[in-house]
Each structure stands twice: as C-alpha cells, then as structure tokens.
Computed example of a mutant assay.
Amino acid sequence: MEKEAKIYVAGHRGLVGSAIVRRLEQEGYKNLLLRSSKEVDLTNQIETQQLFEIERPDYVFLAAARVGGILANNSYPARFIYENLMIEANTIHAAYQFGVKKLLFLGSSCIYPKLAPQPLKEEYLLTGSLEPTNEWYAIAKIAGIKLCQAYRQQYGCNFISVMPTNLYGPNDNFDLETSHVLPALIRKFHEAQVNKQTNVTIWGTGTPVREFLYVEDLADACVFLMNNYNEESIVNIGTGIGVTIKELADSISSVVGYSGDLLFDTTKPDGTPIKINDVSFLKSLGWEAKTNLREGLFLTYEWYKKNY
C-alpha cells in the first residue's frame, strides 16, 4: 500500500477497526477514509455504492460486522445473519464496481466446523457441521469469504480473507449480554472486586479451550498481509496457544486483584470443546504474534478502568 493511498477502514470504531486505524497511523498512512454506521449504513446498498463512487478508496479493510458472544448469537439469529450478509455483499460488490486495488475481509475462527481436528488448519473450512450456537454468524462470514474468492475468480479482484482467533483489547464490548467471554469476565471480576462480592459465576464447565489474540497484534498482521499476501486461500491469525476458560478466569482474577471464589454454571452452554488456530502458514509468510496473554490482559484491564 502506497503511503498516500486512500484507505477505507469499514467499522473503524469497533475493536478490530480501531486497532487497524491505530496501526496504519503508526506506519505513516494518513489518507484514511473513516465513516461511522450513522454516516454510512453498509447494510444499505445505495448508501454503500454512493460512498465508493464519491470517495474512490484504493484499499479496504472490511472490519464492519455485527458481532457478539453465545447469548447474542442465540438471541438475535436473524439480525446476525442478515446484517453481516448485507454488509459483506454491499461492500465487496462496491469495491469491485469502483476499482479498489485490494480488499481484506475479516472472517473468524468460529466459522470452522464444531468438531474439526485441532489445531484448526485453513483447509478444514466447510468440512463439517457448524457450532449450533454460532451458525448464523458463521454462515454469513463463510459467505463473505466465498464472495471474495468468487470476485477474484470472475473479475480478477485482489480480495483476501483472514481468520482471526478470539480477540480482545481496547474498544472491546464489555456488555454482559452481548460480549465475548474475555471482556465479560473482566467486567464481572472488576465489579465483584468493587462490590466486595464473595464469588463470581462463570458460564459452563470451565473446560473448553480457547486461544486469545491481543487486537493490536491482529491489526499488525492485517497490515502485514495487505502488503505481502495476494492469494485466494484464507489465512489464520492467532497465537497458536490455547488456555481453558478456567485458566483464563484465574488469570483475569489475578490481574484484577480479585480473591473470591469462582462458581461454574454448568446449565449454560460451553460451545465448541476446543478451538485453536494453526498459524503455521502465517508464520511461514514471516509474521507471528508479539503480545502474551498476561501482558494483553493487563493492558486491556487498564483501558477498561479508564473508559468504563
């Protein structure tokens, strides 16, 4: 990407988009196109096409999406599949129509089959049934990947897709009804500490294994791939290191300074038993994560205390 190129970061206020903006600015990219969902509704085809026709971005990071944890996915299935399908279809088609040089689409590792072998290799996509609590979001994200591949095959568009693992960091969603597990636990432990609660309840058994990537590392990987990768195949982004939910809870309680008991509500779903990205392909391209979980949790908690 040329330093003077116009770069559109769709979803620039979210966890991923805001990190990509910070990373681009650190690298000296100043011609950034940023529009909130109130300014341009990407689920609206006309508004999306008008944005691209007027602004003519050279590069696009498609980080805009409707996201949430198990509860949100189960509660709003129509919203999750509809909004994500529309955002992807409108943005990718407009990028083709108005000559975008390159587009990077953000998928998610949660779109791999529920019982796929571990760690998750890129070729496991579409080889089995999805996790039922997540299928609405997953089907929409798979459609986005296939859109990028289809426009590449039919029109020669340089559209690439990446599969991040579970993300966390500044600008995360800490709402207990719609957030993912890590920010939800940070909020729960913080409030338990402030309110002097003797215990904290955690969904599920605590045994599922998850991988967590600090969002600043993801942004660094995305900019790296925009500058160094031009193929059809999807690319996993992560650390390749898994921890159980109980281990995660123990780490967060330690960072927060909470010393009460942990209670596990086994009536609540666990989701996929284990989910870790195989990141050997990305490492072979010359990139790997820099921030360990303990450091990332500390930085995220410091941000949370200043902003909530």
Score class of each variant (00 low, 15 high):
residue 98 F to Q: 00
residue 91 T to C: 14
residue 65 A to V: 09
residue 202 I to M: 02
residue 62 L to S: 08
residue 44 N to W: 01
residue 25 E to L: 08
residue 308 Y to N: 10
residue 129 S to F: 07
residue 261 D to M: 08
residue 4 E to L: 06
residue 97 Q to L: 11
residue 81 I to D: 11
residue 288 E to S: 12
residue 169 G to C: 08
residue 240 G to L: 00
residue 229 Y to T: 07
residue 288 E to T: 14
residue 16 V to M: 06
residue 78 A to R: 15
residue 261 D to F: 05
residue 213 L to Q: 02
residue 109 S to A: 15
residue 236 N to K: 15
residue 212 F to G: 04
residue 206 G to S: 03
residue 230 N to K: 07
residue 236 N to S: 12
residue 20 I to N: 04
residue 62 L to Y: 02
residue 64 A to G: 03
residue 102 K to P: 04
residue 33 L to Y: 03
residue 296 G to S: 13
residue 6 K to F: 01
residue 155 Y to W: 08
residue 293 L to H: 05
residue 153 Q to L: 12
residue 176 L to I: 11
residue 234 I to L: 09
residue 37 S to Y: 09
residue 2 E to W: 04
residue 146 K to C: 11
residue 119 P to L: 15
residue 116 A to H: 05
residue 165 T to Y: 10
residue 219 A to L: 04
residue 196 K to L: 06
residue 283 K to M: 09
residue 184 A to K: 14
residue 52 F to I: 01
residue 21 V to Q: 07
residue 68 G to Q: 03
residue 104 L to P: 00
residue 199 N to A: 13
residue 300 T to V: 14
residue 239 T to L: 05
residue 253 S to D: 06
residue 57 P to L: 04
residue 67 V to Y: 06
residue 94 A to G: 03
residue 145 I to E: 08
residue 68 G to Y: 06
residue 277 N to F: 13
residue 73 N to C: 15
residue 232 E to Q: 13
residue 292 N to P: 10
residue 258 Y to H: 08
residue 52 F to N: 01
residue 6 K to P: 02
residue 279 V to D: 15
residue 269 P to T: 00
residue 79 R to C: 07
residue 180 H to A: 14
residue 293 L to W: 11
residue 125 L to W: 06
residue 304 Y to C: 11
residue 182 L to F: 08
residue 232 E to C: 10
residue 142 I to G: 01
residue 221 A to H: 06
residue 294 R to N: 13
residue 195 N to G: 05
residue 299 L to G: 05
residue 41 D to H: 05
residue 116 A to Q: 13
residue 92 I to G: 04
residue 28 G to L: 12
residue 182 L to Y: 05
residue 257 G to Y: 11
residue 130 L to A: 05
residue 235 V to Q: 02
residue 191 E to W: 01
residue 14 G to W: 02
residue 194 V to L: 01
residue 115 L to A: 09
residue 144 G to P: 06
residue 205 T to W: 01
residue 161 S to R: 03
residue 79 R to S: 14
residue 90 N to H: 07
residue 78 A to Y: 15
residue 31 N to M: 03
residue 137 Y to F: 09
residue 78 A to P: 03
residue 195 N to M: 07
residue 60 V to T: 00
residue 108 S to A: 12
residue 131 E to P: 06
residue 61 F to N: 03
residue 110 C to W: 05
residue 212 F to Q: 05
residue 120 L to E: 00
residue 51 L to E: 00
residue 252 I to T: 12
residue 277 N to E: 10
residue 303 W to P: 09
residue 62 L to M: 14
residue 269 P to F: 02
residue 222 C to L: 14
residue 166 N to F: 05
residue 180 H to W: 14
residue 9 V to N: 08
residue 166 N to V: 08
